[in-house]
Design a protein around this nucleic acid. Sequence first.
DNA 1: AGGGGGTTTGCAACCGGTTGCGCAACCGGT
DNA 2: ACCGGTTGCGCAACCGGTTGCAAACCCCCT
Lengths: 337, 337
Amino acid sequence: MIGLCASLASAEGGFVTTLADVAALAGVAKSTASRALGRPDLVAPETVARVRAAAVELGFVPNRAASHLARGNSGIVALVVPTLDNAFFTPIIAGAQVRARASDLQLTVAVHPLDDADDVVDLGRLMRQVDGCILVAPRASDEVVHEVAAFGPTVLVDREVAGLTSLVADTARAFADLSERFVASGHRAIAYLGGPVGSWQDAQRSAAIADAVGDRATLTRLGPFPATFAAGVGAADSVIASNATAVVPYATSLGLGLVFALRARGISSPGEIVVSAERLVAEAIGADEVPAIDVDGDELGREAMSALVDMLASGLDTGARRRLDVAVHWPETTPVV
Amino acid sequence: MIGLCASLASAEGGFVTTLADVAALAGVAKSTASRALGRPDLVAPETVARVRAAAVELGFVPNRAASHLARGNSGIVALVVPTLDNAFFTPIIAGAQVRARASDLQLTVAVHPLDDADDVVDLGRLMRQVDGCILVAPRASDEVVHEVAAFGPTVLVDREVAGLTSLVADTARAFADLSERFVASGHRAIAYLGGPVGSWQDAQRSAAIADAVGDRATLTRLGPFPATFAAGVGAADSVIASNATAVVPYATSLGLGLVFALRARGISSPGEIVVSAERLVAEAIGADEVPAIDVDGDELGREAMSALVDMLASGLDTGARRRLDVAVHWPETTPVV
DNA sequence: AGGGGGTTTGCAACCGGTTGCGCAACCGGT
DNA sequence: ACCGGTTGCGCAACCGGTTGCAAACCCCCT
């Protein structure tokens, strides 16, 4: 802890050791100590060793504020998510957090739906304070995304926009895979529960499924629906009306709601209607026989942060687009028509 | 954004304005400008106005690193949670985040189960870098909590330890309330699904329920259980064996698992067995007739951060314990025995 | 022996707010 | 008009790393 008032400082052991102390103990100049710790390649190995030993002995912890002031950066990166109420985002945060700490960066999580262009002003203020940003903005318009990205180094997550570096979970591919298998195991009527209006992923997934199914089965696209449990419950009737025997829901919560509502109507799932799910939910439902996808949100966050760190280190934004595989779990016991 | 390399800086409008610029424009010394902005009571009102105007005109954003360096603090507070996989913690994070930003503090979320004394060392390193800490450590031992708190200003959440400032949701009180009402509406066999070993809240809740029920009904305490869906499923048999007509589960996920398993066995809930729930889950189950509690995690986080901010500002740790009311939702339609 | 190139190290000037101290102007009171 | 007491403001010294620049030194080659 730093700079506490007396009553609080009492909890604190002793004084803060500075780089100057380390340098003194090692018998070198402050500058040499700094380089020995930060860029050892510029200093004689023997000196590096001495300085390191001194640092360890004194329990030296560099003062971030001083470092950032001198380097002219903030050491903070922002992670912008639309909401915390969706279980899809929290693992991303956790993953990004871990990777950020590994690179000694502070992560600041900003909750911003960004569905409204006004938010950009707010966000702009925040962005002036950070070195870079990971943007999870599934529903923002391309323009808004561009505006935000213009503030500085930005990595987009789960969404692609021309010219910007992005990292997406290839859920569309996984959904295509699922529908393909549904068709292959005899299903002739498939329904896709579409996601929220304007969702980039929804467009991708919808297209991928249509492509995969082709004319080998009828595909009913329902929606758009918000990614909520309630919406899933509400979708049950249209699903039944569609006569689909297999359903691929846009989101976890949507599917869970549907399964719930179907069961309430006496329709077993899996059984009469197979609803694909997300791995964790499949486990929760207690059903091993549910086809499921497994998006590794943690990896998504980690890799996005990696990309941002690289960007910050190299100083250039390659605009690269990367897609992460999404595992598909296809149980032996999946009902066949 | 600060300090970008050329290719990235291109995205950036112009130069960073410093306090010196503001001072120059206002025609005062840097020191006066600093005071005008930070401690207006020390400066002539007319001067304050001029400086403020200059600051606005130049779009001045103070450099945090410089400020922290000069003041000798870090502007960072840590929020330690045992895991992110539990929906109980995320609203706390969100609430704390909001309040922290309002006080211009960075929040760094550290995931630390703290069930192992070794973690303290890790955490110690982190704590040297921050101004204070909010600790959510439901299962850590009192000793470990004390050790962590010794690092600096600390606010405990959802747990009380002698001598430390804490803020808890009075779930125990709510649980007592629930059991009381169960008894009043005729239930004569009540079960409590206990939480994880060593949980402070579990001890509180268990005791509060026992106290509330007294000898007016039989109370079966089951557990300990981890706060997971699976554990809830697994608890179904013992619940049935207990002949309880009303169940109060320690945690949301535990109750959800139980309801699921009961339904799978053809036992309706609510109906034959009433399982109390958490408001959001009750909604999800689609059952308005479920007695539910409503812990405002957001408020918990917000108020905890408030307490920490006060502590930091005043410089003294009062060791105050505060309890937040937990709302109890008791539907008209709750089954009566 | 003299000179070139490379490495190692120290000096000192930053980075941009904050704050102790001192000077000056201004107050009402005698 | 003189004086102790405010009040308002500026000077300059910090806070603690970082880095450009140049000095000192090494090895090797001509």
